[in-house]
Design a binder for these strands. Structure first.
Length: 478
DNA sequence: TGAAATGTTGGGGCG
DNA sequence: ACGCCCCAACATTTC
């Protein structure tokens, strides 16, 4: 009887373009697909609430795809470094294959896994596939990692076009006997009491089918005006691919090649496409940074920020989390996040700037909130994004770049559609007063049925004063 | 992938 | 006719 290979699914929940799975199939041995819900290894960084909802549905989708190939996804929970050797023993496996990941805890965990398996004569192999360019391939002339995005991405592109995606496997040999696992329900990934995500299935389609649908929708329209459209949160102008990418339901090189195919000939479209692909570049940059500098998940990348005088006012943090700051665009974003597990990127920048600069709350508090509430919570993107906004990151926004949340609303939600949708108590205000309700004339507020302080909060900080205080705080660490 | 403060210019009202 | 002021509009610098 042939010994099987265990394929360990991690954040690569797809069958298409998966080098490790392909290698397992090519070996000619039966393949046992396994997923391990590991809340132990990641510790404080284990999967957040909103992401767990997504994970549940993504696993359900993967299960269905595997079943169509006659295979079953074995589900277990526990520390991967213990669970995988146990599974390998139970099925007398010859090897465990998986995709590389770059979280700070992965090297130690994988080293332990490697040692345990090899001691029992079981091979352990990791494969690329989650990034366009492996971290080892990209470095400066001096051999050090890039710390600035533009030269980083230039160096990536100079490596040439990523290889074409692998074909989806047509068949999968399964072992004669398969160890027992948990049911998906046993993993208890969905919220209960209350099920705050009950309506999310109408908003999202987790799984590789939903991922390719999202790419198709984007490339059939919004990409043509991406450069401008992506800044306006009320427009359906972004790809909304982030949760699909985080869980690996589609590979970055699939996205790359689909974008090339859709935009090839037209030069103006090519420019928009390159703008979109550079967003994949920021994803690469974040993941490479996490690979080379794992300490960035808790330490400021720029050392001067170690002494930044954060205030950490819990009431301010709470107002921000609940979308009750009195700044309509900020509140709209925070409520979109809470209600849908997602926030438009422009608004992420504004809300993050508001927390760190207007409220002087530590970026780690905001990072933790986003990580728990976003369906696309990705450690690398989230940490690097927050450090970028706070000014402490690699190639970060300069510290004096403080968004004016009112002006941002006027500029990018010019018709007020986004604010009216997420802050309905302000919906009756005319657009010219919507972005700054507390400054509206009394009769306008009365006509719209808005009483500031009752129906909608007064601004929790004064913009001018908060800006001055932030500048003073940053000046103190220079 | 800023915003605010400050500087410059030029048209138009006005005495 | 001319100088003066005001103030958009735009440009530059500063944070």
């Amino acid at each position: 009887m042939k010994q099987p290979i265990v394929y360990w699914f991690r954040l690569d929940l797809r069958l298409d373009d998966l080098p490790g799975l392909q290698a397992a199939i090519d070996s000619g041995m039966p393949v046992l697909p396994v997923f391990v819900l590991d809340d132990d290894t990641a510790g404080a960084w284990s999967t957040g609430g909103a992401s767990r909802w997504w994970l549940h549905h993504s696993l359900a989708s993967l299960q269905a795809e595997l079943e169509a190939l006659g295979a079953q996804l074995l589900l277990r929970r526990g520390a991967a470094s213990e669970v995988l050797p146990a599974v390998a023993r139970e099925c007398n496996a010859a090897a465990v294959y998986c995709s590389r990941m770059h979280e700070p805890w992965s090297p130690a965990m994988e080293a332990e896994l490697h040692d345990t398996l090899e001691a029992e004569g079981i091979a352990f192999k990791r494969f690329p596939g989650s990034l366009l360019f492996e971290p080892e391939r990209v470095s400066t002339g001096g051999g050090t990692p890039f710390k600035v995005f533009t030269p980083f991405w230039k160096a990536c592109l100079a490596l040439g076009e990523p290889a074409a995606p692998l074909q989806r496997p047509a068949r999968l040999d399964i072992p004669d006997s398969v160890p027992r696992g948990l049911s998906l329900a046993d993993l208890e990934l969905r919220p209960r009491n209350p099920d705050w995500a009950a309506h999310w299935i109408d908003l999202w389609q987790p799984g590789s089918r939903g991922a390719s649908d999202a790419v198709s929708r984007f490339l059939a329209g919004p990409v043509a005006d991406y450069d401008e459209g992506r800044n306006h949160p009320a427009r359906e102008a972004t790809s909304r691919l982030s949760p699909h990418m985080h869980f690996g339901e589609i590979s970055p090189r699939q996205v790359w090649h689909l974008a090339q195919a859709a935009c090839g000939a037209d030069p103006s479209l090519a420019k928009q496409r390159d703008k979109f692909l550079s967003e994949l570049g920021w994803r690469e940059f974040s993941h490479h940074l996490l690979h080379h500098f794992p300490e960035i998940v808790e330490q400021p990348f720029r050392e001067g920020f170690a002494n930044f005088p954060w205030l950490g006012n819990e009431d301010m943090l709470s107002a921000w989390q609940r979308g009750m700051t009195g700044y309509p665009l900020v509140d709209a974003g925070m409520r979109e996040l809470w209600q849908t597990g997602y926030m438009h990127n422009r608004v992420r920048m504004v809300t993050a700037s508001f927390l760190t600069k207007h409220l002087l709350v530590h970026w780690r508090r905001g990072e933790a909130w986003f990580r728990d509430t976003l369906v696309d919570a990705d450690l690398a993107n989230n940490v690097c994004g927050w450090q970028w906004v706070a000014g402490s990151g690699a190639d970060a926004a300069p510290y004096f770049r403080i968004f004016n949340p009112t002006v941002q609303g006027q500029r990018y939600d010019e018709d007020g559609d986004y604010i009216r949708r997420w802050v309905p108590e302000l919906a009756g205000l005319p657009t010219r007063h919507l972005h700054d309700p507390s400054a509206a004339p009394a009769e306008v507020l009365a006509a719209a049925g808005v009483e500031i302080g009752t129906d909608y909060p007064a601004p929790i900080v004064d913009h001018r004063e908060a800006r001055e205080a932030a500048l003073a705080a940053y000046a103190s660490i220079k």
